[in-house]
Amino acid sequence: MRRFSTFNLVSVTFGFAFLYLPIVILIIYSFNASRLVTVWAGFSTQWYVALLHDQAILDAAWVTIRVALFSATVATVLGTMAAIVLVRRRRFIGRTLFSGMIYAPIVMPDVITGLSLLLLFVALNFDRGFWTVALAHTSFTMCFVAVVVQSRLLSFDLSLEEAALDLGAPPFRAFFLVTLPVIFPAVAAGWMLAFTLSLDDLVISSFTTGPGATTLPMKIYSQVRLGVTPEINAVCTILVALVTIGVLIASVVGKTGMRATEAA
């Protein structure tokens, strides 16, 4: 038994080292004074200062945040509706098609999603730019929200909402006062997931974008193709820090929310 736990310790340690070392190295080298990314020449924050003056990167970051805020919010509304349909409406015309359209985009390669949405916007004569990227992100992230919320709704006790209906609450009111507070942690998690997926997306944005709507991943990608630079390390470090803080806050909020619903 003793031998096994050593083996476990080694495999878990190795696993975490593999997962985290590359990111730690990336962060360390963002503070490197040298322009050569692989030679350490002392501590410096000059690349962060340089970032603050790089208007193209700042513009791209702003576009990315606006796209992510819009698409995550709309996707959460649509995805929650879709989850309700999947869980509560066992039988209606085209249910198989509906659930297929929820699951298929999740496993569909990004290149196909991007290509097909671009062709739609071209067919509709839609000017490509901020809105096409935002709509494209909304429609692929809503499926992820639907799956996350669906798993929480499956364990929701429907009799709670029925009691509210019996007491005369209109259906929308019953949903907002009874069901939504209970499933809220899942809805919030869905929003977070949609937000980060949108923040992260390169391929679908590249297909559906137009003039003036370069997102941060597109900017990073075009620079990475030219080589590794400390500025990109600095951008990546900031993004990693933001996401880590966001996930930590979300997990604390989720835990308090969970405790609140358990207590209720």
């Binding site: 696993g15 975490f16 997962l19 985290y20 590359p22 990111i23 190295i25 990336l26 080298y29 990314v37 692989t38 980060t196 923040l199 992260d200 390169l202 991943p217 990073i220 990608y221 990475v224 590794v228 990109i232 390390n233 990546c236 993004l239 990693v240 996401v243 880590t244 966001g246 996930v247």
Partner: peptide, 19 residues
């Protein structure tokens, strides 16, 4: 700790390996 890297950008994780 296993899930956390999944939340950081895919592009960043690939980029980290180039260096």
């Amino acid at each position: 700790l296993i899930i956390l890297p999944f939340w950081t950008s895919f592009l960043i994780r690939v980029y980290a390996w180039i260096g």
